[in-house]
Nucleic acid binder design. Structure first.
Lengths: 183, 183
DNA sequence: CACTCCATGTAAGTCGTTACATGATTCG
DNA sequence: CGAATCATGTAACGACTTACATGGAGTG
């Protein structure tokens, strides 16, 4: 039930077309809620049907025509309700942790290589977040909105730091079977 | 594509019936890959069809009859292949972070209460993990299997610590609205 | 024998992924 | 005008969720 609310949030921040939304989901919003353009178009259709958003430039129902959406009062209301509703944290579901557990049973030559690869990916992601932080959240600005968005970004940063720490430790612990040396 | 491999791992650790698997997915395995009993029964059917597991006590195809499954060589092989295959980390997808972002747009009276609730839940989960660590991983035992499984548990522990740290900071930062905000 | 719990399963619907289709626009 | 790119959309499938159905076994 999160995708429609992610879209409403994005549209409130800035009215957009489907493709623009897709692009934004590849950047800021997508850093904590990803979605493909097919999901987005389908959901836009549902939200329009439900009277929570509406398309500007309504005249042309043509196929390749750009359609910009904006949020209606009903949509803003629905989003407010969702934000206020308690929701328990989801169970963890991580394929890498699962693979380690499986490796404890069937063995895993080369798993250390995979861990190093993940470590590099997380370091890159962390660097990207830190660059965004430096660009968007200089120390002096402290509007409430900014602080909330900064907190969300800090969440991403902390998560990457968790992975980097855990992977580093895993590799140092020497518990992970090593890959055969390449020639 | 992770669920069948989670089941194979669980069955290799100990042959079980569907309901026993469900229970184990509520405990150890489920700490990093959760699944409902419907998912598990369906997947058990597929795995049996595919010749990767087989049911013991085969005579009775009765409905309420307990069926114990064990992994066949083909299943073990399939699991080994999966463990060795590279797979990129998934994008973050967290409803709480999304709600915070939405709160930056529509406001969120009482969000701090929700954060405190999450904080308590994560502290409880952490305590549970630490109890398991103390019970299952005393300092002296260092078999390779144990170290891998310990690493996985450390992953869970570190993740809970991430949430506790982030939530604590969020509450301390005073960026989270405690009362309705005008727009 | 009614009740409860154990155990397996069906059904329906939503969400997410992958592949592909089609019209509109721009630019050499 | 031909090709690339922009933009929206269809189709199909698999994963996940929720609600419910059915049979078996033990117990008062």
């Amino acid at each position: 039930m999160s995708l429609p609310h992610a879209i409403l949030t994005a549209l409130l921040e800035k009215p957009s077309s489907g493709l623009e939304l897709t692009r934004r989901f590849d950047r800021s919003i997508g850093y904590f809620w990803s979605a493909t353009h097919q999901q987005i178009y389908r959901e836009l259709g549902k939200l329009e049907q439900a009277g929570q958003i509406r398309a500007l430039v309504p005249a042309q129902p043509a196929r390749g025509q750009k359609k910009e959406y904006e949020v209606l009062p009903a949509g803003r209301e629905a989003l407010s309700v969702w934000v206020a509703r308690p929701e328990d944290p989801k169970q963890i579901r991580d394929p890498l942790l699962l693979r380690m557990r499986a490796a404890a049973v069937v063995g895993a030559p080369g798993l250390d290589t995979e861990l190093r690869r993940h470590l590099a990916l997380h370091r890159r992601q962390l660097a990207e977040y830190l660059a965004i932080e430096e660009r968007d959240f200089p120390p002096e600005r402290t509007a409430a909105q900014d602080r909330l968005r900064h907190l969300v970004l800090r969440g991403g940063i902390d998560l990457e730091n968790f992975w980097i720490g855990w992977l580093t430790r895993a590799l140092a612990d020497d518990a992970v079977p090593e890959a055969p040396e390449p020639e």
